[in-house]
Design a protein around this nucleic acid. Structure first.
Length: 686
DNA sequence: GACAGAAGAGTTTTT
DNA sequence: CTCTTCTGTC
């Protein structure tokens, strides 16, 4: 869309024109949020003549960043006062890496640092907990890592926890201290470090920090409700000198609390920044009135939210639909039949349809059925390419070569493919390294000197160390892709994988995976300006997305979780498995997260443009036993009159005779809810 | 070090 | 029930 202030609505224009000072844009679902952000950037450049390189827009996903950059390019081609620069549009983490690339040595790291992902982190925590300082029955490493992440995400340091009066917290503090020390020793950073270290730099080394951040005089933050504590502090640091900061978010779409997002940052923003100019975007350009009504009715049941109400001009549209069946199989068959007939009736493309669900495992049944029925689909989510064990193993070689101090990666591959360095030798190696305070790879290089590593094992260790050194040189000189291929061939990577897979199918798949990786590496080496090993690894850590080549143009039905659907829209949306304790999820309810689940339902509903269908099976098999299911509590919050035919809770399909009676009951329950809300001063659904 | 059988877990996920 | 991870044996 071209840049045109006149085509914006009043509120949108207000958000675009308020370029100076602190601006909070509360953007409801489908209210043209991205359009506002990109128009704002275009306006700054074209009308206010701000040099592009002074503009910084941060997002949470690369996808959002790319999309935004693309749209800015279209809106403001070659503008920016004749200068050739472009605004920086990237994720928080990419910004952090950019900053650390030039400054990390101030914080005691070397510039060849590597980035640890979740698996690396977990491996590290496992190692620390096995070292015996922590009782084995204390916590699962997974839970410990989670607790540790939560603490760090809140900006806490090990010292803060060590000071705590509760012993469990102090113990966590000891683990955190060990974790952070080890990371530093291995010259590795985790994702949270990509935010925390820049912040620390601002506080401890303001001169180099300003040198980098000082260039940005206009800051924009997308999906602001998803920021965590550290990100909030970082936003404050960046905006401090000029105060020109515009944050765009929606507290009703905050669905990432469980991983540290603090939607309270919206309130904090209003408190901490002077003279905040708040703009509400409530006009929805996406959905029909019935869909918006349903969304409003559900979300109004949340107590702690900024009051707002979506409205649209798309007309009333088709009523909601409710499919209820006896079994999961029948539920999904009903969905597929419905999809087929809707497609014919509306002459729609398969890519106009999305089937959403609460959790990933629910995709299995629908996938099976779609395959049987010959309906092509695109499953989004699941295990990502770069998370596959085989791919991670291959990349671990590169990580060790880039940074020989990375011992998590080192131990991952030290005996894969097999080279006779078994568990016992590895433990000894780790002990010697810890005892001497020297990197394990160095010990390996000198293995001959140690009685422990006499014979074949020592030889093998020296050989491995030599391989790493040799390839470090080769990667520095030779082409990335070819060198990588030679490396894998030399260590016998393919052979080892083939040996390990017994059936032909998985063998084929694995080999294909590694081939794909080699291709991708080669492509990077050929097309990048800086095709170094270091930048390749950085690229993988930061930008490697679920091999998402945007398949939305292809004729495929989209299958994904509601989380995955955030930010997207589809003409026709099915939300399957709408049973209570499935959606809302049982475990989330147990943890008191009903409101977050409701926001998730709100996100699901607001994805639909023209038609919205919910479905449920009355019985579900769980771990062998059969459970009876009731409709999701969220569906009972929707006025039954918005549904075509029987509404959820009416149980119409099973007992046609009682249908009218049950519908009446559902209606009464609905207005009962409305009354309750009025009494508590929340305002009722409309 | 390979393999079989037991035991345990079983939301959401980007960077 | 099903998939993953751990444990113990040869």
């Amino acid at each position: 869309m071209a840049f045109d202030l006149d085509s914006l609505n009043d509120r949108q224009r207000e958000a675009v024109l308020a370029t100076e000072g602190a601006v909070l844009v509360l953007a409801g679902a489908g209210s043209g949020k991205t359009r506002v952000i990109t128009s704002r950037i275009a306006h700054l450049m074209r009308n206010r003549k701000v040099p592009p390189e002074q503009i910084l827009a941060v997002t949470f996903t690369n996808k959002a960043a790319n999309e935004m950059a693309q749209r800015v390019k279209v809106m403001a081609p070659g503008s920016g006062n004749g200068s050739a620069g472009r605004p920086l549009i990237c994720t928080f983490h990419a910004l952090g890496v950019r900053m650390l690339r030039r400054t990390i040595q101030h914080l005691g790291y070397r510039p060849n640092f590597v980035i640890y992902d979740d698996q690396d982190q977990l491996q590290l925590v496992r190692g620390l907990m096995e070292d015996g300082v922590f009782e084995s029955d204390w916590m699962q490493p997974k839970d410990a890592l989670f607790a540790l992440q939560a603490a760090r995400g809140q900006g806490l340091a090990a010292a803060d926890l060590l000071r705590d009066e509760h012993e469990p917290d102090r113990r966590l503090g000891r683990l955190l201290a060990a974790y952070e020390d080890t990371l530093r020793r291995m010259n590795a950073v985790d994702f949270e470090d990509l935010l925390r270290l820049p912040l620390r730099l601002c506080r401890e080394h303001p001169v180099p920090a300003r040198e980098f951040l000082g260039q940005f005089r206009y800051l924009l933050v997308d999906e602001y409700q998803d920021t965590n504590h550290t990100q909030y502090d970082l936003v404050r640091e960046i905006a401090r000198p000029h105060g020109n900061v515009c944050v765009v978010g929606d507290d009703d779409q905050s669905i990432y609390r469980w991983r540290g997002a603090e939607p309270e940052n919206i309130k904090k923003f209003e408190r901490d920044f002077a003279g905040v100019h708040t703009v509400h975007l409530e006009q929805n350009y996406r959905s029909t009135d019935i869909i918006l009504k349903a969304a409003n009715q559900v979300i109004t049941h949340n107590a702690d939210r900024k009051p707002k109400r979506l409205w649209g001009r798309q007309g009333e549209g088709a009523p909601l639909e409710w499919l209820e069946a006896d079994s999961e199989r029948q539920e999904l068959e009903a969905v597929v039949n419905h999809l087929r007939s809707l497609r014919l009736r509306r002459d729609a493309k398969l890519s106009d349809f999305a089937i959403l669900y609460r959790s990933n495992h629910q995709s299995r049944g629908i996938e099976e059925l779609l395959r049987e029925e010959g309906i092509p689909y695109n499953l989004v989510g699941g295990t990502r390419f770069y998370d596959r064990r085989e791919v991670k193993d291959a990349l671990a070689y590169l990580k060790v070569i880039a940074n020989p101090d990375d011992e998590v990666s080192l131990f991952r591959i030290v005996n894969f493919p097999r080279r006779g360095i078994g568990r016992t030798s590895q433990t000894k190696l780790a002990d010697v390294a810890a005892h001497q305070g020297r990197p394990a790879l160095q010990i390996m290089a000198e293995a001959g000197r140690y009685a422990d590593f006499a014979g074949a094992t020592g030889q093998s260790m020296q050989h491995f160390a030599e391989l790493v050194t040799r390839y470090r040189r080769r990667f520095a000189e030779g082409p990335l892709g070819a060198t990588f291929r030679e490396l894998l061939a030399e260590v016998g990577f393919h052979r080892a994988l083939e040996k390990e897979k017994t059936d032909a199918k998985s063998r084929e798949k694995t080999v294909g995976l590694i081939y794909e990786l080699e291709q991708a590496t080669d492509h990077f080496g050929r097309t990048r300006e800086e095709p170094s090993l270091k930048s390749y690894l950085e690229h993988i850590a930061l930008f490697a997305m679920p091999q998402d080549t945007d398949e939305r143009d292809k004729p495929l039905v989209t299958l994904m979780t509601v989380h995955g659907a955030k930010g997207l829209e589809f003409p026709y949306v099915y939300v399957i498995g709408m049973a209570d304790e499935v959606f809302p999820n049982k475990r989330a309810l147990d943890e008191g997260q009903e409101e977050e689940e409701r926001r998730l339902a709100y996100v699901a509903i607001t994805r639909a443009r023209r038609a919205l269908v919910f479905s449920m099976a009355r019985a579900r098999k769980r771990y062998g036993e059969t459970l009876r299911q009731r409709p999701s509590r969220f569906l009972l919050e929707i006025d039954p009159a918005l549904f075509a035919g029987p509404a959820p809770g009416a149980a119409g399909a099973a007992h046609p005779g009682h249908q009218e009676q049950k519908t009446k009951e559902a209606r009464e329950r609905f207005f009962e809810n409305v009354r309750k809300l009025r009494e508590t001063g929340q305002g009722g659904p409309g």
